[in-house]
């Protein structure tokens, strides 16, 4: 091995394996120029060690901890995908969809009654029935949703994560 081959190891002496180190030590005993370089590197490293020993401490440690803790206490913004999944799984969607279909049926029905030429008593009564049925479904979903809301109210906490809320709801549903 030439002197050039030892150069990197001279600079990284503390990182060498025992074997590499003894190899280099043996060379340093016989090579003046490598020994000089080794000593120079050691001098620079001593200076760097002095810098390392000067510990950098946060000037306002307690305030720093405080602001970190208040940041994690804020409920995190929900990812859009997560929100959609929760919405589809919830009773809220059923409630919304049955409400919407009731409204559409009412609109359709009134349009139908407005046009006497197409009016047929049997059709009208079946339509009225479905409107009533839809309204009932809507009311049921609504009241069930309200029930659930009060049931899960204590799961909602600004100090807990969404995961905590979901877990809490899951336990209650069991």
């Amino acid at each position: 091995m030439s002197c050039k081959d030892y150069e990197q190891n001279i600079y990284t002496y503390p990182e060498l394996s025992a074997k590499e180190r003894s190899h280099l030590d043996a060379h340093l005993q016989n090579c003046r120029s490598c020994l000089t370089l080794f000593q120079e590197v050691q001098q620079t490293q001593q200076l760097i060690n002095q810098i390392a020993e000067e510990k950098v401490i946060p000037p306002h440690a307690a305030r720093l901890t405080g602001s970190i803790m208040s940041k994690i206490a804020q409920p995190s913004k929900r990812a859009f995908g997560e929100w959609i999944i929760e919405l589809l799984l919830s009773k809220r969607s059923k409630f919304a969809l049955s409400g919407l279909s009731s409204v559409l049926l009412f609109v359709f029905c009134f349009q139908f009654f407005d046009d006497p030429a197409q009016f047929k008593a049997s059709q009208a009564s079946s339509l009225t029935n479905s409107v009533i049925l839809n309204a009932k479904l809507f009311r049921e979903n609504f009241s069930r949703h309200k029930e659930k809301r009060t049931l899960f109210a204590d799961c909602r906490s600004p100090f807990q994560s969404n995961q905590y809320y979901l877990n809490c709801v899951k336990t209650k549903l069991k």
């Binding site: 901890t65 970190i68 100090f159």
Partner: peptide, 24 residues
């Protein structure tokens, strides 16, 4: 599991290192 006090202890014991590194 959502224990804020436990996390606070982690913050207190590691924030010095984090700050020092960021400052360097």
């Amino acid at each position: 599991d959502g224990d804020h006090q436990a996390f606070r202890q982690l913050v207190e014991s590691h924030q010095g290192l984090a700050y020092s590194l960021a400052y360097r």
